[in-house]
Design a protein around this nucleic acid. Structure first.
Length: 950
DNA sequence: ACATGAACTTA
DNA sequence: GTAAGTTCATGTT
């Protein structure tokens, strides 16, 4: 080809970081527990560039030993950068090795950054008549752009953009790319710790460049500035010039561009395959082989095949003149774009995938559709509504799919009667026991349909729940699942209805075509995910957990959430007024003691008052963000230094109480029902627990006298009802005793002893009836500590004991309960061997850090290995109890309803005439939910509010 | 308007 | 030392 030769210089670290963070929410971990995200991300980008552009010359540039020159100039340079993540550190040697096997030159120069190496090489290549493409997302490189030197930037969402002189001029509002240096010098760069001029950000920097052309020009003409800005710029001229120097990429690194060395050679395919195999990169191997086995393909076909709407091609001219365009018309082999499924930046969408999504017209078409629907064995459906609150949301349409790539959308009329009429036609489907229903977050759909008096019956498959069991540490929203498992990007809801807030549309206002595309796509994807997950459930041995716990529980939770709980608003309003008075009183006391008024709720202002004005302590503790720490544990320690401290602590406690509970709860009462409806999250807690939000009813205060008053506001539905609270007593300790088969502890439980006193008696070697309060309290702390994975440090923080006393106590504890200790190390060993731990029902938690070389990271994973099976087993057990109690209440047609779950407690609204039966029922089901060598014990209490019942 | 960190609530 | 959620202040979009 007579074309100008093209050199690609790759900024290695920038692409590695980018690749690593692209996977951050869903890191790639292989069976050896290695995080391979960074390697995979980098290789994807590199192969992508090669495939798209077919460069004839290519090199990858790394930093080495940081920039000694820049550190000499400014010692803070890059000083506050976070330490390189472990996953990136371990990736570097692999990447080096792969590059060697690919015969791609690696450029590094001790004491220089990749920017400098790339800058120098690009200038040398330019002299020899090359066009150079700097492959990096880093904006700093814009200063290097010339007629023959371009930036080749990966963009989020896929594709690349090429920045030449016009793009840089536009982006930075400069006339010459070199002015980018002045621009960066003025505004600074927090990630590189380039200080910049104080008070100058992006906007001001652009203005100055336009006005003065350069940093020097600005400093020479400060008389044209005014006010604060003039003072600041004049006072910081030195800093400005230094910043400019720091931002300048060096062009005199002692490296040489030798064209021959940079030619893109054929890789050592076997060697690369070997390394990829070791890393367990299957799809990447395919991608690699395709990239290089088809080296005869022209740049054009390669680009055509991976082209996307967001992409801007690097050199359109060259592409046009490249030969054999005839292949592109029908795409040759179309696999490559779709088969490289691990490539984060090229994903399938509804526009690139063939599908048949149709809306169903009213009348006959609907009748025929429903007939067809009723003849299916298994159907995926998804409801579209006017909002996210299922209590108030109205149905807009329902999507159905039972065949991949195909589905139907049934719009629901806005008129409520007409809507109900249509729903009635669908009732036989939803209430069919024989048709399996598939969905993503079915709890929502079930709640919405319940508002139309439709019960969803038959077998259920919820993809969100399935994935929660497959990998509880990930997120489970459909977008993430589609991207991870199907390499597919669904239409985003914001694309449809806009960002929330000002101009957000309701689903009803979206065109029917768009509703159909969006809704049926969701149903289609969910169906595809189901195919994916149903096998994985079996492989992870969690099928039973899915069928017998999570799926049945979904209906239980839907019922509890719909039920809600009655709240005494008037009582809370009274409480609020009292709190308000007390808070105001504390406020004026604090202002008087501080000698000025300030925002007590601002930790920043408070820190300054306490540690700079009042100088309460010589060397104040700081938080990780460099503020003074005013955390409770810090302040409590200072309480005797100054009266203000106790007042601040009281102020904080009361403010929290007022804002989070006393004032917030009444606003969360649903108007239509007059009750508070929390939302239980079934797929959030990594251990298998539920969580609760909007509002969170699992953290209603109880420890302090003032706080627990809030519980008085939770009341029965009317005078015919009474609240019943049922608590598992010490369930986690019972589980660890049973799992470890620690006889001494098991016996204590069997004999109904006070377990903390019993522990104290054994550990401190005193008769049970002579145990002191302090001994019992310390024993209690250790008992809980065991569940969390103790350390002497943690224990001494929690008790009055010193570090060495704590260590001694822990040692004696282990000596008293040797099997407990053995059990704990068994869990850690199991995690090391298998990569996960599990609960009594086989619920797994994967612990990728269990073999980390970083002791802190590994320690945390080890504590998880001990705690997850215990916390998780307790969660399993109460879930079993909830399901069986719910079923018994249904079967017996009881008026009593289960309302709340708080990890080891259930709260019921009991119809008074049923109380005796319910007490027996609840206690029996809870205590017999799961059989172990240790009995489970449940305490019951009733009352006219939640405080009395507890 | 949105995201983050600190502080505080629970089991 | 485990597991969560909410509020407020603060800084950037």
């Amino acid at each position: 080809m007579s074309e100008q030769k093209r050199l690609f210089l790759v900024d290695a670290y920038a692409l590695i970081f980018r690749g690593y963070y692209a996977f951050i929410k869903n890191p790639r971990i292989n069976s050896k527990g290695e995080d391979t995200s960074a390697i995979m991300g980098f290789m994807n980008s590199l192969l992508d560039v090669i495939k798209r552009e077919r460069p004839d010359h290519l090199a990858v540039c790394f930093d080495k030993g940081g920039s000694t020159d820049r550190v000499e100039m400014f010692e803070a340079y890059k000083a506050n950068r976070d330490e390189t993540p472990e996953g990136i550190k371990t990736a570097i040697p692999y990447i080096m090795e792969i590059l060697k096997a690919m015969h791609i030159p690696i450029m590094v120069k001790e004491g220089y950054e990749a920017d400098d190496v790339i800058g120098t090489l690009s200038r040398q290549a330019e002299k020899e008549g090359y066009k150079t493409y700097m492959v990096t997302p880093d904006k700093d490189f814009a200063q290097l752009v010339t007629e023959n030197i371009f930036m080749y930037r990966p963009v989020f969402g896929g594709g690349y953009e090429t920045w030449g002189i016009p793009e840089v001029q536009k982006k930075f509002e400069v006339t010459d790319p070199m002015q980018v240096i002045d621009f960066l010098g003025m505004m600074g760069d927090s990630s590189d710790n380039i200080p910049g001029l104080p008070g100058v950000g992006e906007k001001t920097a652009k203005k100055f460049i336009a006005q003065f052309g350069s940093m020097e020009g600005l400093l020479a003409n400060t008389d044209q500035l005014k006010g604060k800005m003039k003072e600041k710029v004049e006072a910081n001229g030195e800093l400005g010039l230094l910043s400019k120097k720091l931002a300048t990429i060096m062009l005199d690194v002692p490296v040489t561009f030798n064209a021959k060395d940079f030619e893109l050679d054929h890789p050592d395919v076997e060697k690369v395959k070997e390394i990829f195999q070791e890393l367990e990169f299957r799809r990447l191997t395919d991608n690699f082989l395709k990239t290089f086995s088809s080296e005869t393909e022209t740049a054009q076909t390669a680009i055509e095949k991976t082209s996307e709407k967001t992409e801007t091609k690097a050199t359109p001219k060259e592409v046009k003149s490249a030969g054999s365009g005839q292949f592109s018309l029908f795409g040759g082999d179309n696999n490559s774009a779709e088969a490289t499924t691990e490539n984060t930046f090229t994903r399938k969408t509804t526009e690139t995938t063939s599908h048949f999504y149709q809306s169903v017209a009213p009348g006959m078409a609907t009748k025929l559709f429903i007939k067809n629907l009723m003849s299916q064995n298994s159907v995926c459906f998804d409801t579209e509504t006017t909002g996210i609150n299922p209590i108030t949301a109205e149905l807009v349409g329902i999507a159905f799919s039972w065949e991949i790539g195909k589905g139907f959308y049934l719009p629901i009329p806005e008129n409520r009667d007409e809507a109900q009429e249509l729903i009635e036609q669908l009732r036989p489907f939803f209430e069919s026991e024989s048709i399996e229903k598939i969905g993503q977050n079915l709890k929502y759909d079930i709640k919405v349909l319940a508002k139309y008096n439709v019960e969803v019956k038959g077998k259920l498959f919820d993809t969100m729940l399935a994935h929660y069991l497959i990998n509880p540490d990930m997120r489970h929203n459909m977008d993430v699942l589609a991207e991870t498992y199907l390499n597919y990007t669904p239409i985003s809801i914001t694309e449809l209805i806009g960002k929330k807030g000002k101009n957000q549309l309701s689903m009803r206002e979206v065109s029917l075509d768009k509703q159909t595309e969006y809704a049926v796509e969701d149903a289609d994807i969910t169906l595809q995910l189901k195919e994916h997950f149903q096998n994985e459930l079996g492989e992870a041995n969690t099928q039973k957990l899915f069928d017998e716990i999570e799926i049945p529980l979904l209906r239980v939770l839907a019922a509890m959430e719909l039920e809600g709980i009655n709240l005494d608003k008037a009582f809370l309003n009274g409480l609020s007024e009292q709190l308000d008075k007390d808070i105001k009183a504390l406020e004026s006391k604090i202002y008087a003691e501080a000698g000025e008024e300030f925002n007590i709720a601002s930790p920043k202002q408070l820190g300054i008052i306490l540690f700079e004005k009042l100088k309460l302590v010589d060397k104040p503790k700081k938080t990780k963000t460099g503020q003074y720490s005013t955390a409770e544990e810090v302040l409590s320690y200072l309480a005797k230094e100054h009266e203000i401290i106790q007042n601040i602590l009281d102020f904080r406690g009361l403010s929290k109480l007022k804002s989070t509970y006393v004032d917030a709860l009444p606003t969360q009462v649903e108007e239509t029902t007059g009750r508070v409806h929390t939302d239980y999250m079934q797929t959030v807690a990594a251990t298998g627990r539920l969580s609760s939000n909007n509002p969170n009813l699992q953290n209603i205060p109880i420890r302090t006298e003032r706080g627990r008053q809030v519980r008085k506001a939770f009341i029965p539905r009317n005078e015919d009802y009474i609240l019943l609270a049922a608590d598992y007593s010490q369930i986690e300790l019972r589980i660890i005793a049973a799992l470890s088969k620690e006889e001494t502890m098991i016996e204590a439980f069997k004999n109904g002893e006070d377990i903390h006193a019993s522990t104290a008696s054994k550990v401190f070697n005193v008769p049970l009836n002579e145990v002191t309060r302090e001994q019992r309290s310390n024993a209690k702390t250790v008992n809980f500590g065991i569940i969390y994975g103790v350390s002497a440090f943690g224990l001494s923080n929690q008790t009055d004991l010193s570090r060495s006393e704590s260590k001694e106590l822990i040692d004696t504890y282990y000596a008293t309960y040797p099997k407990l200790r053995a059990y704990m190390s068994e869990q850690v060993d199991f995690a090391r061997d298998n990569g996960y731990v599990q609960t009594v029902l086989g619920r797994r938690r994967y612990l990728k850090d269990i073999n980390s070389r970083n002791a802190v990271v590994r320690g945390a994973a080890e504590r998880n290995a001990v705690n997850a099976p215990i916390q998780g087993s307790a969660a399993d057990i109460i879930k079993i109890a909830m399901i069986s109690i719910y079923n018994k209440l249904q079967e017996g047609n009881f008026k009593t309803k289960m309302l709340l779950q708080v990890h080891d407690e259930l709260v019921f609204d009991v119809y008074k005439p049923e109380l005796d039966n319910i007490k027996v029922l609840v206690k029996t089901e809870m205590e017999n939910a799961f059989k172990m060598d240790v009995p489970l014990d449940v305490e019951l209490d009733t009352g006219l509010n939640w405080l009395e019942a507890h």
